[in-house]
């Protein structure tokens, strides 16, 4: 019998605990497939955030550490200084990375730490039950913006790729989306490129993945993807923002 599809080696056989239609599973899979294809499972340390993906430490089959809210890039900094041969990646949501962990994100990027940061942006705090995130869209309802996000009161959604791309040092910054098979294929290329750059010691790699949260958005899986396409992609346009290894210049470059 010929195996045509299987679980990546870099994932454990623990059943994912994410909600139906959630795209964390997809993000986990493309990272795990990339780890497998690069043959780095036994050199890789993954860092689980606080948020829905806190349980990532149970799902990846590489070394895993679960860390305080927002501090993953600082922990990764300590690891890669202690073990320069390790491939260290962080996996963080929008609250973790762009609210409580903003300083760690910006400064690890500015130091061009040789790590891969995978940023899952679904515009909401998932684990705690749907509160407003730094990436919540204008007018979007969340449990802590029950009348819709009022940008005059709580600011405009933060575009992290654009912010980080203003820094001189970061090596690679790209925003992708996980809303269709075609986009997922493209997202995987970005993930694999980030990990490859980390292997090659090229510095800070940052891949933002536009994702969904059917549960907290109150939508079914299919319509949540349509909603994200219509509402999130205009605010968070996918694109390559920086690729110093490939000679790309700073600033958004729409493809």
């Amino acid at each position: 019998m010929k195996v045509v599809a299987k679980r990546p080696e870099a994932l454990t056989d623990v059943r994912l605990t994410y909600c139906p239609g959630c795209l964390h599973g997809v993000a986990h899979r493309i990272i795990a497939e990339s780890v497998d294809e690069l043959g780095i499972k036994e050199r890789t340390i993954g860092i689980a955030p606080v948020g829905c993906a806190v349980f990532a430490y149970r799902f990846f089959a590489c070394d895993m550490v679960q860390v305080p809210h927002g501090r993953a890039p600082a922990v990764a900094t300590g690891m890669r200084r202690a073990r320069p041969g390790a491939i260290v990646f962080t996996y963080q949501g929008d609250g973790d990375l762009a609210a409580i962990g903003t300083a760690e994100t910006v400064h690890s990027a500015n130091r061009n730490e040789n790590i891969s940061v995978f940023f899952i942006n679904n515009a909401v705090y998932g684990m705690t039950g749907g509160q407003m995130a730094p990436t919540t869209l204008p007018g979007m309802r969340a449990t802590t913006s029950p009348y819709g996000r009022d940008v005059s009161d709580t600011g405009f959604p933060m575009r992290v790729c654009e912010m980080l791309a203003t820094l001189e040092m970061p090596n690679y910054i790209e925003r992708v989306s996980l809303l269709s098979p075609k986009e997922i294929v493209k997202a995987k290329k970005a993930v694999k490129k980030a990990l490859k750059y980390t292997m090659e010691g090229r510095g800070f790699s940052f891949v933002e993945m536009i994702s969904t949260c059917p549960t907290n958005w109150g939508l079914d899986p299919v319509s949540s993807r349509e909603w994200a396409r219509e509402n999130m992609l205009p605010v968070f346009p996918p694109g390559l923002f920086k690729d110093r290894s490939a000679g790309a210049k700073p600033g958004a470059e729409k493809e």
């Binding site: 860390v67 305080p68 600082a74 300590g78 690891m79 390790a86």
Partner: peptide, 10 residues
């Protein structure tokens, strides 16, 4: 947290 990361590496 950098200490946490380094210490986790032994």
């Amino acid at each position: 947290n950098m200490v946490l990361g380094a210490a986790a590496c032994g």
